[in-house]
Amino acid sequence: MEKNINVTLKIWRQVGPKEKGKFETYKLDNVSTDSSFLEMMDVLNERLISERKVPIAFDHDCREGICGMCSLYINGHPHGPDGEITTCQLHMRNFKDGQTIVIEPWRSAAFPIIRDLMVDRGAFDKIIQAGGYVSINTGGVPDANSIPISKVDADEAMDAASCIGCGACAAACKNSSAMLFVAAKVSQLALLPQGKVEAAHRAKAMVAKMDELGFGNCTNTGACEAECPKNVSISHIARLNREFLSAKFKD
């Protein structure tokens, strides 16, 4: 049932990537438990604007859990304590009256802070640009049904492809490893005959770019999978390892 709660917010404020940041504390009363977490942030920002203060910068866009734009490390978890959702799908009913909520940006050397809770995840784009595609041009492709693909493989590829590129995996990982993100793309395309052709090259190129951009080494803690809003499985990381190692041994 809907009710109103009072919360205390400890929010990270930082002007730019080089400046020093710090926590600011805000008290917010009468927050509807039916509102989403970001709507609560909107209400806070409206208040700050009315007080002629600079509102808190945070990334968000679709607000339905698919674009991957929203981030936020809430009370020790990327996308908050509730499972299998993004921050924009988190609702205030997950918090108690009087609770203190700590809100931090994604922290990782590869995701520099732009302002407050906004970080630069361009590294993920660069990894995809290194090889997260099938090298075909528009037109001249065979009929869609010319190559049958087993439902099992197609479904598993779909599970991997459901990654939204939000960065929660690297943010949650104690090593700030991007392996789940990379594995999701490598695995999706390696499972499909269309992507299999250049699977070896892809795995090598994407891993090399990931390493170059300063992400850490995967130590199989599984924190990525546990925090992934789309529940992408670390079994894809095993497939990435397999693809990468077999590619390297073939060289």
Binding site: Y133, V134, I136, T138, G139, V141, P142, D143, A144, N145, P148, I149, S150, K151, A154, D155, A157, M158, A161, Q188, L189, L192, Q194, G195
Partner: peptide, 22 residues
Amino acid sequence: NGIIDQCVAQGVPFAREYGGLL
């Protein structure tokens, strides 16, 4: 029709039947 062919060639994991077709 060309769009579907294009997307499949890119590795878009469309839903499939047990026979392997779309």
